[in-house]
Write a protein that binds this DNA or RNA. Structure first.
Length: 676
RNA sequence: GCGCCCGUAGCUCAGUCCGGAUAGAGCGUUAGCCUCCGGAGCUAAAGGUCCCGCGUUCGAAUCGCGGCGGGCGCACCA
């Protein structure tokens, strides 16, 4: 049995047949023949409005042209018939029986792609607990990774740790000056006990403690401006290294990123490599990139003006940066320190294997524990996945080869579009135009709080979340780690778990084994969360609302899961009753047929999602598929159906749905519950 | 000021890339459907100046131009 042709392939061959016929009949060469899905299955499977285009030039009625074409076109393999519909549409119907038989046998397969893609996502500053904006980033990145893998690509997942930046410095300053932590040993105790000396422990763990402490540092800087020297002192200590403060920073960053890995792990997200900024510095990545850039003629040492003493990347000649007030980007400050963008250029060069220097690598062993997360809650396959980190002082000989990517995708929110453009431009001025073209910024809008969500936060978690009167008037407010304003990822997951446990409990008898119930409740919570973060277009601000996020009905993850579990129930019952399916025969009803077509369209849906970096289309496809199946389920009972050919067609539809729905939920990272 | 994004049903959003058949979904509202493969479901109704104007076109939510409203960016922060 040959592989089922993709709908895209059928579309292509029909388009070519139409083009040929048009050239033959009218001597017209069209650039592109549009083929779309008609609004109803009874109108056929592929429709072309091409006759409308030709009508004027040929001075003929569209219907007449369509009729001539229908007669002249030799339908390609897989297409059963061509006919005229409406005011002049040329509609094609596929050979339903042949397509269905093939699809029942083997899924449509996308064509594999060559070369490794490095996807960088998550990138949370390791100085506080993750919030729901970080979840959007991680879920988008993870689903991109899963989509690329489905399409046959090799992918490496990197999660960059800025362990030497301002944010870590601030929380370390808080530990030193507010928390009373003096030594690395005391920091380790504070981490292990989630407790500052002489204070009660934070029940939600060390990352939560840092969340509060970081906000307190922000307030202290405001209230007592003289304390702002703390930051510079800590940054300086981190930079010079080999001192107590820098060691504290290292253990804090490691502990907090370990907590992030646990939080992401509980929703099924894994990483291959954690590149650390400290290793980029210690491995002198910048020194190398600096030499390369100086040689390129685009990096200048300013000798006068407000940027005197700075090394700047000249962007004024690039059309992409036209119209900017200040078309230059400072990479080296006048005090000799380098900006984040400079490090990022060096890092991007390394990702493509263009820097000529490599990291050392060591295994990273996360605790799989973060506040409310326990290792048992993190799926076994996540815990089993090896995580590596970069190092500068010796490599594990078993480390795999990292970097040397064919393509690079950086998942970063839209506010960083400008520095991301500078990074690409950095590659371009170095003569790596092709690498620049193979670098993509996967930009997406932020998760913000609706004023209503902020009010609920204040009620649930405390008055410090109360918005100012000014902010109350806005359509939404940005979350802010510095202010401590935000919905923490683990808090939202806990609320989802509470909801799903209650639902699962109320739907099954007391006799049900509790272990399965907990597992199913987790699957449902994860499904609800991931779908909620995926269903919006990436350019939409998600104004977070608890009721919407906690909803399990309608356009939600659990709805998708329910449809899959339902299909599974049918096959269990069929087994119980000893009914066995034979290969389908007879004419395919319109609604069964359109469900098959939808189920078969995953390759083109995912291809397009990767091309446009718009993953919501995959989520919407899954929802539409679930909706079609639920309608089918109510209209076309299987177990009660006496007529064998009819029953066999329905069984075939249910089987294909189950296979393809499981596949798309896998791509979305939405687990399948045992029962619902 | 310049650049990018958003504006579609009471609310939250698809549809805009590549113009095409009656503009769709979910929530909410109203009215129905469990002796039935489990109702996290299904059926139906009500609900639309597709932000506004001009233009292109046989045809515009979709393309172009000009506005309006909201958000973000244009750091020796990231």
């Amino acid at each position: 049995m040959p592989e089922t042709p993709t709908l895209e392939a059928l579309r292509g061959s029909l388009a070519r047949a139409l083009e040929d016929a048009i050239r033959r009949l009218y001597g017209v060469a069209l650039e592109r023949v549009v083929l779309e899905r008609p609004p109803k299955a009874s109108l056929g499977d592929l429709a072309s409005p091409v006759a409308f285009d030709l009508a004027r030039a040929l001075k003929k009625a569209p219907r007449a042209i369509a009729a001539e074409l229908a007669a002249a076109v030799e339908p390609p393999r897989g297409v059963a018939s061509l006919r005229v519909e409406g005011g002049g549409y040329l509609n094609a119907s596929l050979d339903r029986e042949a397509f269905a038989a093939s699809l029942a046998e083997s899924p449509v397969a996308p064509s594999p792609r060559a070369g490794k893609t490095v996807v960088e996502h998550t990138n949370i500053n390791p100085n506080k607990a993750a919030h729901i904006g970080h979840l959007r980033n991680a879920v988008l990145g993870d689903v991109l990774v899963r989509t690329l893998r489905y399409l046959g690509g090799e992918v490496e997942v990197q999660n960059y740790l800025d362990d030497t930046g301002v944010q870590v410095a601030d929380v370390v300053a808080g530990l030193l000056h507010i928390g009373g932590v003096r030594t690395e040993a005391e920091a380790r105790t504070a981490i292990a006990e989630a407790r500052l000396p002489g204070q009660p422990a934070n029940a939600k763990g060390f990352a939560y403690l840092c969340w509060d402490l970081y906000a307190e540092v922000g307030r202290t800087y405001e209230a007592r401006p003289e304390t702002k020297t703390w930051r510079a002192e800590v940054l300086h200590a981190i930079e010079s290294g080999e001192n107590e403060t820098s060691r504290i920073a290292t253990v804090v960053a490691e502990a907090v990123s370990s907590a992030h890995l646990a939080t992401m792990g509980r929703i099924g997200i894994v990483y291959d490599l954690l590149p650390r900024e400290s290793d980029i510095l210690k491995r002198q990545f910048w020194a190398r990139a600096f030499e390369m850039l100086k040689g390129s003629g685009s990096l200048f040492l300013e000798t006068e003006g407000k940027h005197a003493g700075c090394w700047v990347l000249r962007l004024s000649e690039s059309p992409e940066f036209a119209g900017l007030e200040e078309p230059d980007k400072i990479l080296v400050r006048s005090n000799g320190t380098i900006t984040y963008t400079a490090k990022d250029i060096a890092y991007q060069l390394w990702k493509f294997g263009l820097l000529g220097i490599d990291f050392d690598y060591r295994r990273f062993a996360p605790s799989w524990r973060s506040g409310t997360v326990t290792p048992e809650e993190v799926p076994a396959e996540v815990r089993a996945h090896p995580v590596w980190r970069t190092a500068h002082d010796g490599s594990d000989p078993d480390a795999p080869a990292f970097g040397r990517a064919e393509r690079v995708v950086n998942v970063i929110d839209v506010r960083q579009s400008y520095p991301q453009k500078v990074v690409r431009e950095g590659l371009r001025v170095l003569g790596f135009a092709s690498a620049a073209d193979r670098s993509a910024h996967f930009s997406y809008e932020i998760v913000a709080l609706s004023p209503r969500a902020a009010r609920e936060l204040a009620e649930r978690f405390g008055e410090e979340y109360r918005l100012s009167a000014e902010d109350e008037k806005k359509p939404y407010v940005e979350m802010s780690g510095r202010k401590g304003l935000g919905v923490k990822a683990d808090d939202l997951i806990e609320l989802l778990l509470e909801r799903s446990r209650a639902e699962v409990q109320s739907r099954r008898g007391e006799d049900a084994p509790p272990g399965d119930a907990e597992e199913d409740a987790r699957a449902i919570a994860v499904g609800a969360l991931r779908y909620f973060l995926l269903k919006f277009g990436r350019n939409k601000v998600i104004a977070f609302d608890f009721d919407e996020a906690l909803n399990f009905e309608g356009d939600t993850g659990p709805y998708l899961q329910y449809s899959l579990v339902r299909a599974g129930n049918i096959f269990r019952k069929l087994d119980d009753k000893g009914i066995r399916a034979e290969s389908p025969s007879g004419a395919w009803e319109d609604d069964l047929w359109s469900l098959l077509l939808d189920a078969a369209s995953l390759p083109e849906i995912t291809e397009r999602a990767v091309e446009t970096l718009e993953l919501s289309t995959v989520a919407r496809h899954a929802f539409a598929l679930a909706q079609s199946f639920n309608q089918f389920y109510h209209r076309h009972p299987i177990l009660q159906e006496e007529d064998a050919p009819t029953r066999n067609r329905r069984i075939a539809v249910a089987r294909i749905f189950r296979r393809e729905m499981a596949r798309v939920l896998g791509i979305l990272g939405i687990p399948e519950p045992g029962r619902m």
